[in-house]
Design a binder for these strands. Structure first.
Lengths: 358, 358
DNA sequence: TTTCATAAAGATACCGGTAACATCATGGGC
DNA sequence: GCCCATGATGTTACCGGTATCTTTATGAAA
């Protein structure tokens, strides 16, 4: 039973332009007198190839500078070896924090073939809220690492519900089963406040971060709790809002230092704001640390380089990145949801911006 | 002539796990009573489909939340819609400079389906020098944007010679036909020096960047030239080395301000170092701008936020990113090497760190 | 009415790998 | 010597699109 159409002879597709042409497994196989299936086994590191043949294949491959075509490989195995790195808010992309996380992620990726794809939610071409889900549907990535979301972020839930491999760096509402990794902010803040209290400071001001960030919420809560635990009173006029920028720190500092009763120590919920507070102190003619002690949070590169060098809470950001990629790879490669890791310990780095109260 | 083997019946591959299963063009086609070829035409925006059918296809696609499988599409069309973003030296990834470039790139990418893949050459898994060429061979990207390389960078040449689409942000040795885009550093420095000279400063110090960076070389050359043009002498003891970090700026500033004849103005080759110079001034008890004027270069976010706000040369970084992506897309999409664009104009932003000499 | 250019839609092969299964050679255990 | 387990290797059928060519429908020109 022949098809009703006459037989056709269709010319093979025109060849790719030379720049894009490349060696294929079939070619290597031909040179080695075998088939591409065997070559495929060699490169995938699967068993079932004799040592002699394997070496022959590798030799030819090296000679021809062969590299496995990831495109074709992905297509066949349905894995693309890209991980989406999502930066959902202003200022993240260009920060040392970002840099450290990337370092950690790359370390965790290790020998895996995955690379990081940048998705900056602030870019104009990302305005549509379902961008990430579309990217997933398009098979551009195998999963996402989402940096420090707002607790209320709406775009995480639909992703998670679609079964997209996902790790959040920061804290998310527990319960909907999203993997996440965070530092132990509470503990970090506690150490900072206890350090200041131990130096005899009584009036310890607080400069906070954006309210919608979970990290900011946790740090503030821990400040209040620790103050109470060490027997100090929290004066509401000493609790200043901020938004994690140097400017907001400087403005908060200016208000604090102009108050009729000024604090002898200030804890800022991140380093940038702490630097701003120090600037405000200088502008008001106060010396750090003689007149006022300042402590930050994060221990980014700037903190150590500043003058005076900032006493701050060191967050193991690189390690967080490393753990994040491990959690994600577990989901992608082994389809295995690792148990939620505990928050990672912070520690206090005492530099030159704090001193005992005289 | 039948093959010598008996006919075989091989079971179809097991289906993908549900999470990864998805609607295909064939499915949409079936629902619309047509073939996947037509559906393909619709999504590629190619002509040859009646309006009625096109709408029908789009309607079904929307209903099923269909997205074209980029993996398969890339495979077939031999374009992967990823662009490699290469950061070849320390500190770039976490800088505002990086952030701005990315903003510009994303803007330039516009509606193109390309996304950015991060290649941080400092990551341990990138130690091998031919990483980029391998990535290219693996068909993971369609081309590269390389940020501010050393002029001597060896890894650019082999890439360019292999015909890899490539744009360098910064200056490269002309002649080997690598597309590049840069700001007019010379002009920027000229404006800064003329500004200070116009304020009556005679002893204008210079704090430079790493010698192997082309931007640093050009800025220094322009400093010398402009000083001569405005009739001022360059004292070699007033030309300090630096490496674009705040710390190096502070150290350079400390030396300058402790010299027996100290400068009344300092130009630093980037903002971070300028901030360091201001810190050094304060540490030595000098006021900015009353005792010493300071000018930076780049106009990153910190410059405006600092106190006192920094007078600096504004570099159109975002625009540079935008031009870079346009240049690259031209090569990728149209196989067209656009003519080398001229350096983009800088302009001077006068803030609070400079004042006339009394 | 016939011819032919043009637009719409279909048919086929193919991109370069991988999954699943088939086959074959080898050698040990009986 | 025969059977079967085992490991090496080959065969086939895809993955889900796109390039290219063919066929069919439509309508204007002759």
């Amino acid at each position: 039973m022949r098809p009703k159409k006459s037989t056709k002879v269709i010319a093979p597709r025109t060849k790719l332009k030379d720049a894009r042409r490349s060696v294929t497994m079939a070619e290597i196989a031909r040179l080695c007198g075998t088939t591409k299936m065997t070559v495929s086994r060699v490169f995938a590191g699967r068993p079932g190839v004799s040592e002699a043949l394997r070496e022959k294949v590798l030799k030819q491959a090296t000679r021809l500078k062969y590299e496995v075509n990831q495109q074709a490989s992905s297509f066949s195995s349905n894995r693309v070896n890209f991980i989406g790195l999502v930066t959902p808010f202003e200022g993240l992309l260009g920060s040392r924090y970002f840099q450290r996380v990337v370092e950690g992620l790359n370390r965790g990726l290790g020998n895996h073939p995955h690379d990081l794809v940048l998705f900056d939610m602030l870019s104009p071409n990302f305005e549509s809220g379902d961008k990430l889900e579309r990217v997933w549907r398009q098979r551009k990535v195998d999963g996402f690492v989402i940096l420090a979301p707002h607790t209320t972020d709406q775009f995480i839930r639909p992703l998670a519900e679609s079964g997209v491999p996902l790790v959040v760096v920061g804290e998310v509402d527990p319960g909907h089963g999203v993997a996440s990794i965070t530092a132990d902010d509470e503990q970090g803040v506690r150490m900072a406040i206890e350090h200041l209290a131990g130096y005899g400071h009584k009036l310890i001001a607080y400069v906070g971060g954006p309210e919608m960030l979970s990290s900011a919420q946790r740090r503030l809560a821990s400040y209040r709790e620790t103050m109470e635990n060490v027997g100090l009173e929290v004066k509401e006029s000493m609790v200043m809002p901020g938004n994690y920028t140097m400017r907001s720190g400087r403005e908060a500092g200016a208000k604090l230092f102009r108050a009729k009763r000024r604090p002898t120590a200030v804890f800022a919920a991140n380093d940038d704001m702490a630097l701003g507070v120090m600037q405000a102190a200088m502008a008001e003619g106060l010396r750090v640390p003689e007149d006022v002690s300042v402590v930050g949070f994060d221990d980014l590169a700037e903190a150590a380089e500043y003058w005076p060098a900032l006493t701050t809470v060191h967050q193991p950001i690189r390690r967080i990145g490393l753990v994040a990629s491990n959690l994600l790879l577990a989901q992608i490669v082994s389809d295995f949801q690792a148990p939620q890791p505990p928050p990672l310990d912070c520690n206090l780095v005492v530099r030159d911006s704090t001193a005992p109260l005289e």
